[in-house]
Design a protein around this nucleic acid. Structure first.
Lengths: 162, 162
DNA sequence: ATATTGACTTCGAGTAACTCGAATACTTAA
DNA sequence: TTAAGTATTCGAGTTACTCGAAGTCAATAT
């Protein structure tokens, strides 16, 4: 536990530069209590330590992966509380893992569709096809058709005016 | 070009059921002109054709992949305009491909970190470790450290009150 | 005949997570 | 002494939903 990790070193500008986040966002995270130990100097300016950077990195990576701020807050509260919260933390992390996997899956699917669109446009531009596939007419460019449940059949519920 | 594709068949409830979107969201997309040909029945109720479902599927998949509504709108406008917009459409699609790939990359990275956290908690729970790795003390759970640019050095800009 | 149910409509407010600009304050360099 | 640069807070704006209220209409149950 190096004391220098807790020595304030960086201004908000430094942190913005280091992390790639905007100063606005960093202040917002601080206001939301997502970086619990940020100190201030004699002029009330925020001063960040390496340790604060660690926290910020953690918060940032949780946010990038889609965890809402409220849950990041909850996670942080548990960290501050102590070892007895480890089972709960482990649970939250497992849930987040599932969500990430689902997202990666969905994105890979969408990437496939995009690649098909791209290939299609390429062949149209090469003059091998004309745009009969245009979404205005009929649109097979965007991948999977929806599954239409059996109980929904043409005009089933469409009340036509008498 | 089957005429039946353009026959109104589904109520908003059907569409919600088919797509998994909420009725609210579907109405919102319609209000935003993201489904250009939706018709109404004698009671002013929305009525969707298979063709409308195709559009909605396209819109939905663009949104899932993170394209802002404004750009989906732009894409739709180009589709409606005709073949001469194909180069621009291809460009938009290529840009979107890049973004998806970047996202998938970031998510995979985050997934790695999450798996590490998970493994760490598991070993703590198994009693092999105590929580000296806790983010309160020092936090190596969250992956990559930020690169700190050379020109930022300890307390470089930290004005200490005189 | 009337009441309930259920589906639709529009409208307007609420939410999350930023995002931005304005007003203000302080220091330092020209 | 003025301008540049950095910081602060505060409050409003944005995006993409998300939700509920209020109203309308038609079929069904009593």
């Amino acid at each position: 536990m190096n004391q220098s990790l807790h020595e304030p070193k960086y201004t908000i500008k430094d942190v913005a530069e280091i992390t790639g986040l905007t100063k606005h966002t960093i202040r917002y995270y601080d206001d939301q209590q997502l970086i619990p130990f940020v100190s201030r100097d004699g002029r009330n300016n925020r001063l960040f330590s390496d340790h604060d950077l660690d926290w910020l990195r953690m918060v940032h990576s949780f946010r990038v992966s889609g965890l809402p701020i409220s849950e990041v807050k909850h996670y942080i509260a548990m960290c501050l509380q102590g070892d007895e919260t480890i089972p709960d933390r482990a649970e939250l992390v497992a849930k987040q893992e599932k969500e990430l996997e689902a997202k990666i899956h969905a994105y890979n699917l969408q990437l496939m569709h995009i690649k098909e669109k791209k290939a299609y446009y390429k062949s149209v531009l090469a003059g091998q096809l004309n745009d009969t596939w245009n979404p205005v007419n009929n649109n097979p460019e965007c991948g999977e058709k929806y599954d239409i449940p059996e109980h929904i059949h043409s005009a089933s519920k469409a009340h036509v005016s008498p």
